[in-house]
Write a protein that binds this DNA or RNA. Structure first.
Lengths: 227, 227, 227, 227
DNA sequence: GATGAATGAGGCTTCATTCAT
DNA sequence: GATGAATGAAGCCTCATTCAT
C-alpha cells in the first residue's frame, strides 16, 4: 500500500531534518560540546523524538559522517566519469578530494575525528556498519579507476588497485590534515616558516609524486613531474 | 644555593610522576573518559595537587603529547645519525616512525586526537606553545636530512626540504592512521577485502614511492622501487 | 485546551515546592553554606530538576527573596486598607514592617543580604528584574499613602511622596537592622549598655519623629510626639 | 628591652601590610570571591604567613572592618571637635558619615556585609570583640554630642543620648544603603523614577527631620526645616 | 618567623537518556 | 509518534588550612 510507503518516506525525511540540525551543531561545537538539547531545539523537535530516530548522540554523529560520505562519493563519481584518460581521472579525484576539503571543511574534520576508537566503541553496531560501507564505496571509486588505468597500460601491472587506493586516499588525507592543522594552529613560529609554502600546489605535487611512481615507463613520457 | 636547585629538580620530578599516571589513564580511557580522580589516584596524589602542576585536564593531556614528541624526536635523531648514506637516512626515519607507531601505539593515536580544534581551544596558550615547539623539532630532523641529501646529489635540486618534510610526514601519518583504522574497525567487510594486504610492506612501498620521485636520475639507478 | 493550562499550573506549583525547600535551607544556612544537594533532598527532587526550574543557586536565592516581597507587600496593603485616617495608615505600615521583621525574621535578613553586589552580579538578568519589580511594588504602597495624606492636608504640601517613601523605608530598615544586630551580637559590652533600651518603643518613636516632621501645623496639633 | 618593643612594632607593621593587601582584594572581590592566595600574593607573603597573623579569612575580613571603623571614628571626632554649637555638631557628624560613604564606599559596603550572622559565627571571639568595641567608640562620639546638646538646652530633656545615637546612626546608614542600592542596581525602571531625586539633599533633609524632632521649642526657632 | 607544597572535602552544574502521558 | 519533565551519576575544579622544612 501507498500508506506504508508514505510513512517510510516521511520517516526518512524526518531523519534528514534531524541530521540537518545535528550537523550544524556538530560543526559548531564538536561532538563533546554538542548537546542533544541544542540539536533538538534546532530541529524544532523534542529531545525524546531524537531518540526515536537515532540511538545515541554518537550514532547521530556518525549519521552526519555518512552524509559527508555521500557528498564525497558523488564528487568522486563525477570526477571519475568525465571520459578523460585514466591518468587524468586520478588527478580529477585528487582535485575533488581537495575541493571537498575546502568546501566541506567541517565534514572533513569530522571524518578524522570519527576514527577515534573511543567514539567507535560508543556507536551502535548497525550504524558503524552503515558508515563503514559508505566509506568503502568511496574507496571503490578510486580502485576502479586504478584498475582501468592498469588495463589500458597507464599503471604498471604490479600495481595493486586496492593497495594503491589505500595509499592515495591515506596520503591525500594526511596532507590535507597537515595543511588544515598548520592553518588553524595559532603558532607564529610555524606560520612564519610556512609563509612561502603554497599548500595548494604542494598537495598537487605530492599526489603527483605517488601517481608518477605508479606509471609505466611509457606513461611517464607524457607525464611531467614538477617538484 | 643547592636548595633552590633541589626544589626545582623535585618539582620537575613530580611533574613527570604526574604524567606517568596521566598517560596510563589517557591511554586506557581517552581524553573524554579519563577522570582527574583516576589520574590522581594512580599518581598517589590528591586531585588538588594535580592542579598545582597542570592547569587543566586538557593541559595534562597535552603534556603527555609532549612526552610522546620527545620519544619520537629521539627515535628520529638516532635514525638520522647512523652515518649511512642520506638515502638510507630517510628510510631509517620512515622506519623509526613506523616503529614508533607500533611500539607507542597509544601516543600515536593521541597525536591525531590532539589536533582536534575543540581540544586546542581548551589548552592554555603556554602549553599549546610548548607542544607546538616540540612538534616542530621533529620536522626539523627530517628537513635536515633532506637538505643533506640535496647537497650530496641524492635529491633533485628543485626539492624543497621544508615542503618535502611536510609531505613525507603527512604521508606516513596518513598511511599509518589508515592502517590503524582498518585494524581496529570491526567491519568484517573491510577485513576480508584486506586479508591479503601486507600493511607493513605497503607502508614501506608507499614511502619509497615518494622518495623515488625526489631522487635525481643518478640516484634512481641505485634505487629499486617495488610496488 | 485545559491540558496546557494544567501543565502550566503544575509547573508553577513545582516552582513553589522548590522555593519551599530552598527557603528552609537558606534560612538555616545562609547562601554560602546552603548546598543545592540539601535543597534537592528537602524538595524530594533530584538536583538536576532544580536546575530545570532555576538557573543557579543565586537565582533560587532571589526567588525566595521575591516570595518575601510578596508577603511584605500583602502586609503593607492590608495595613494601608483599613480605612483609617491617613496619619494612622503610615503608622500601620510602620507596624506592619516591624511585624514582618519579627515574624519573618529570616526573610528580613535575606533582604539585606540580597543587596550585596557580588550576589547581584551572579543572578540572571531576568530574575534580577523580577525581584526589582516586586520590591518596587512595596514602595508604591507607601508612596500612595503619603500622596493621600498630602491631599487631605495631613502632610505638608512640600512633601514628596517618592522621596519620603524612600526615607521612611530606609529609616525603618536601618533601625531594624540595628536592633537585629545588637540582639544577635554576643558582645556583653553592648548588651549591658542596652539593657534599658526598649527597642520596640524606640522603633516606634523614631518613626514617629520622621512622620512628625512631615505633618502640617494643623495635623501636629493632634499628634503627640513622645521621645 | 628595646628588642621586645621593636619586635612588637614590626609585628604590628606586618599586620598592617597584610591588611593593606587584604582590603584591596576584599574591595575588589568581596568576601566569598576573595582568596587567601590572592591576598598573599598582593602582600608579597606566603599564604602560611597570613595565618601566622590572622586566624582565618573571616578574621582578616573583620580586621579590615576595624580599620574602616578607625577611619570613620577619626572623621566623627573631627566633626565633633570644631567648637561649633551642638546643633551644628550633629549636622557635622551626619556630613562626615555621608562623606565617609562617598570617599570610602568599599568600607561602607563591608560594614553592612559584616553584620551577616553567618560571617559573625566564623569570626574568632577575639576579633569579634575588637571589632565590636571599635564600633562602639563611633557611637560614643554621637552620644557625647547629644548629651552635650541636652545639657545646653538644644535637645529636649527627655531625649536619651544612647537611644538617639542608635536612631541617628541607623537612620543614616539605612538611607545611605538605599542610595547605594538604587545607584548600583541596573534597573532602568527604578532609575527613571528616581531621576529627579537629589539624593545628597534627601540624605540631609531626612537627617534634619530627626534632629528637628529632638529640638526644644527654643532651639526650633533657629532651625529651619526644609522638606 | 617564613614558606609553599599538599591536602581533600565538597560544591555547582551539566546532560544523555528514559518513560509516563 | 511525539513530548519534555525528571533523573542521577559524575565531572572538573577551588581553596582554606596545615605542617614539615
Amino acid at each position: 500500500m501507498g500508506t506504508a510507503e508514505r510513512k517510510e518516506r516521511e520517516k526518512l525525511h524526518r531523519k534528514e531534518e534531524i541530521i540537518d540540525a545535528a550537523e550544524k551543531v556538530f560543526f559548531d561545537k564538536g561532538l563533546a560540546m554538542a548537546t542533544m538539547d541544542e540539536i533538538a531545539e534546532r530541529a524544532e523537535l523534542s529531545k525524546g523524538t531524537l531518540y526515536l530516530y537515532y540511538k545515541s548522540k554518537e550514532d547521530l554523529y556518525m549519521a552526519v559522517i555518512c552524509r559527508g560520505h555521500q557528498i564525497l562519493l558523488k564528487m568522486f563519481q563525477q570526477a571519475a566519469a568525465t571520459g578523460e584518460p585514466t591518468i587524468k581521472l586520478l588527478q580529477n579525484i585528487g582535485e575533488a578530494y581537495f575541493a571537498f576539503y575546502k568546501r566541506h571543511h567541517d565534514y572533513f574534520r569530522m571524518f578524522s575525528f570519527s576514527e577515534n576508537s573511543q567514539l567507535q566503541s560508543q556507536v551502535s553496531e548497525e550504524m558503524r556498519m552503515t558508515c563503514a560501507e559508505s566509506g568503502q564505496c568511496i574507496g571503490g571509486v578510486v580502485q576502479a579507476v586504478i584498475q582501468q588505468g592498469k588495463e589500458d597500460g597507464t599503471y604498471r601491472p604490479e600495481v595493486s588497485p586496492l593497495e594503491m587506493s589505500f595509499v592515495l586516499w591515506a596520503h591525500c588525507r594526511g596532507v590535507m590534515e597537515l595543511i588544515d592543522h598548520i592553518k588553524s594552529v595559532p603558532s607564529d613560529g610555524i606560520k612564519r616558516a610556512c609563509s612561502e609554502v603554497d599548500f595548494d600546489k604542494l598537495y598537487r605535487k605530492s599526489t603527483a609524486m605517488l601517481v608518477y611512481a605508479m606509471l609505466t615507463e611509457e606513461a611517464r613520457k607524457n607525464f611531467k613531474l614538477e617538484l
